[in-house]
């Protein structure tokens, strides 16, 4: 059952990427940098360190071979596979608007609203 949900999500993202070249809400909800506790400008060293720390905290070898732990770990491995590869990371950054030339999404009407970020002023 869990698989099916995941399968579907893959599919939705795939469809979204193929159709619009734009991330869906679902996709943004899984911010790869945030999962590892990083900011999008993290250096490769910082990414690696965060990955190792994360694996030490949640690898099934250390925390028991539970399906949920395995699933989370699979996701982290996937995240790291993308962020540790310069080309895949560039593509990911591009899609998610993390490139150096990106405009502040709060001032950019074209950008989709993003759950991961909070505009402090609008909160006040």
């Amino acid at each position: 059952d869990r698989y099916r949900r995941r399968g579907r999500r893959n599919f939705r993202i795939a469809a979204a990427v193929a159709e619009k070249g734009f991330p869906s809400q679902d996709d943004v909800a899984e911010d790869f940098y945030a999962v590892l506790g990083l900011l999008p400008d993290a250096t490769p060293q910082q990414i690696k360190k965060a990955y190792y720390n994360c694996m030490k905290a949640c690898h099934p070898d250390l925390s028991g071979n539970d399906p949920d732990i395995n699933n989370f770990c699979m996701f982290i491995n996937e995240v790291y596979a993308v962020l540790s590869d310069p080309i895949q990371r560039m593509v990911y950054d591009e899609i998610h608007g993390y490139v150096a030339t990106a405009i502040n999404p709060f001032f950019d009407d074209c950008a989709s609203k993003d759950h991961a970020f909070v505009d402090e002023f609008s909160c006040i």
């Binding site: 911010d31 999962v35 506790g37 990083l38 994360c54 991961a116 909070v118 402090e120």
Partner: peptide, 13 residues
Amino acid sequence: PLWVPVRSQVAPA
């Protein structure tokens, strides 16, 4: 505005 990646405060563990 200050951008705060809220989710990053949740440690994965």
